[in-house]
Nucleic acid binder design. Structure first.
Length: 460
RNA sequence: GCCCCGUUCGUCUAGUCAGGCCUAGGACACAUGGUUUUCAUCCAUGCGACAGGGGUUCGAAUCCCCUACGGGGUGCCA
């Protein structure tokens, strides 16, 4: 194991944003690639917004994505506690160090960090007020993605709020020092704040970690400006869970947001991602999320699955639609699914595509109805083929095909004359899986019943 | 306002560090055609970008400067 130590520090305030998931993933990927340690640290200092349910949800989502942690909640570790709400003694201790060094002062009940340098006041447009500023020496941020970035802090900032809670910048740096964090990978929104953090490292006499600021995930321009927010469509991992996306597809997709492997391969398992991952290949500019590409990746994974695991993954969507239940015969389910796997690009579309295999109460497509059942001679076609099919003893694809061919020869037509109307009678639509296998799977009795029913219904 | 980061097809990106191999490659999307005598699969083809301007150079997507545009920060949020 290398000495690389990275951490992911989410605040458990509800659902998991796709950008949060990406930050977790990139930290995890880096730790695994380097043989380092991945720490999960919970930023739960805001008591009103943090709930135990939200924390459970967070852990559940991480596990669903296949992200595990070496230190943190439920995993333990030598640098705990891993909840910021339980680290007050440590914060007090570190605050004392700064106070002893003469780097703090109190104002309005809060504790501020005192920058070093010449002081002056200036009218600031942003604050719309005269503010005190400091000409502090620039600090250099060593960033694996952006190179060296120089920036100077110009205002003292809050360490401990007037209600006694330590603030983000302070907790962040103290925890990273105390936990021996070596690399900090986070969103670009923290780049400007990093000069505060380096001021703090310097004040503690600690060596800053190596930083890597990842590009922002941007909102679809049609929806507005700026970074993607939790309210935007596609922004929440939970949405993909509900829509029965495959976790490996979600992981693959978010890994490709702001990063690309050198060899250009796009469909990558989490092992292959780990193997190829390199911070040098992370993009500098913001990335926009494309649901179509996400679906495409999902389909690629759906096609790669064995029929057994495909069936396992398909069940939730089919059960939600009320088409299958625990009693549904697994062999039948798999034979239906074997027809769908190559055709259908998402589990959320599976129920509408396959409903008629499980229920007689399937929807009737009006366009298909017009093109088949309501056409001249449709009933005759059904009446011609039904007895032929009924007389088949061994209901196999080959025998079914033979029945159609024999009839077609007798009538001097092509089997195609019967296919569409039969497909419609069985499925209520004019599209679906390959025709003959579909009949075989549906079974003889159901086929005959539906043909008779359709003939009756459109007889007048 | 000030500070920081960025800018290659509609989108994700390769190429930029070490300038010529780039008439800029791939993927998704889209369009057309084909296969599947169904289709949402599959195959083929097409469409489509170096933000603009100036420099440096024999030569610039690649290096430098300016402008424009985008993003972020500037919170007793994280």
């Amino acid at each position: 194991m290398s000495n690389v130590r990275v951490r992911f520090e989410p605040s458990p305030t509800g659902s998991v944003h796709i950008g949060t998931a990406r930050t977790a993933l990139f930290n995890w990927l880096y730790a695994r690639k380097q043989g380092g340690t991945f720490i999960l640290r919970i930023a739960d200092t805001d008591k009103e917004r943090n709930t135990p349910e939200a924390l459970d949800e967070l852990l559940r989502v991480l596990r669903w994505l296949g992200i595990d942690w070496d230190e943190g909640p439920e995993a333990g570790g030598d640098y705990g506690p891993y909840y910021q709400s339980q680290r007050n003694e440590i914060y007090k201790e570190y605050l004392q160090k700064l106070t002893d060094a003469g780097r703090t002062y109190e104002k309005d009940g809060a504790v501020f960090f005192k920058l070093e340098g010449e002081r002056y006041t200036e009218y600031e447009e942003y604050a719309k007020a005269e503010v005190e500023k400091v000409r502090a020496a620039p600090v250099v941020i060593k960033d694996l993605i952006r190179g060296e970035v120089a920036r100077s802090e110009e205002k003292d900032f809050v360490l401990v709020r007037s209600n006694g809670d330590p603030g983000f910048h302070f907790c962040n740096v103290v925890d990273d020092i105390a936990m021996g964090v070596t690399h900090v990978l986070r969103g670009e929104d923290h780049l400007s704040n990093t000069s505060k953090h380096i001021e703090l490292y310097n004040a503690f006499g600690a060596t800053p970690p190596v930083f890597a600021h990842m590009p922002m995930l941007l909102k679809d321009p049609k929806l507005g400006k700026g970074k993607m927010s939790k309210r935007d469509k596609g922004a929440l991992i939970e949405e993909y869970q509900e829509r029965n996306f495959l976790p490996q597809a979600v992981v693959n997709f978010i890994a490709l947001l702001g990063w690309a492997p050198k060899d250009g391969q796009e469909v990558l398992s989490i092992e292959e991602l780990t193997d190829r991952f390199d911070l040098k290949d992370v993009q500098k500019s913001g990335a926009r999320f494309d649901e179509k590409k996400m679906s495409h990746l999902n389909f690629e994974y759906m096609k790669l699955m064995s029929l057994e695991s495909y069936a396992v993954a398909a069940r939730p969507a089919l059960e939600k639609a009320g088409l299958v239940n625990a009693e549904t015969d697994e062999t039948y389910l798999q034979s239906v699914l074997s027809l769908c796997q190559e055709k259908i690009d998402s589990f959320e579309n599976l129920p509408s595509f396959s409903a008629y295999f499980f229920s007689d109460a399937f929807a009737i497509n009006e366009k298909a109805e017009k093109k088949t059942a309501k056409k001249e001679g449709a009933i005759e076609r059904i009446q011609e083929i039904t007895p032929r099919l009924d007389s088949i003893e061994d209901w196999t694809e080959a025998n079914i095909e033979a029945a159609f061919n024999t009839l077609a020869e007798e009538k001097d037509l092509k089997p195609f004359a019967w296919y569409p109307i039969v497909r419609f009678a069985l499925s209520g639509t004019n599209s679906g899986p390959d025709f003959l296998p579909m009949l075989e799977v549906i079974g003889k009795q159901t086929t005959i019943d539906r043909l008779n029913k359709t003939a009756e219904k459109y007889a007048s």
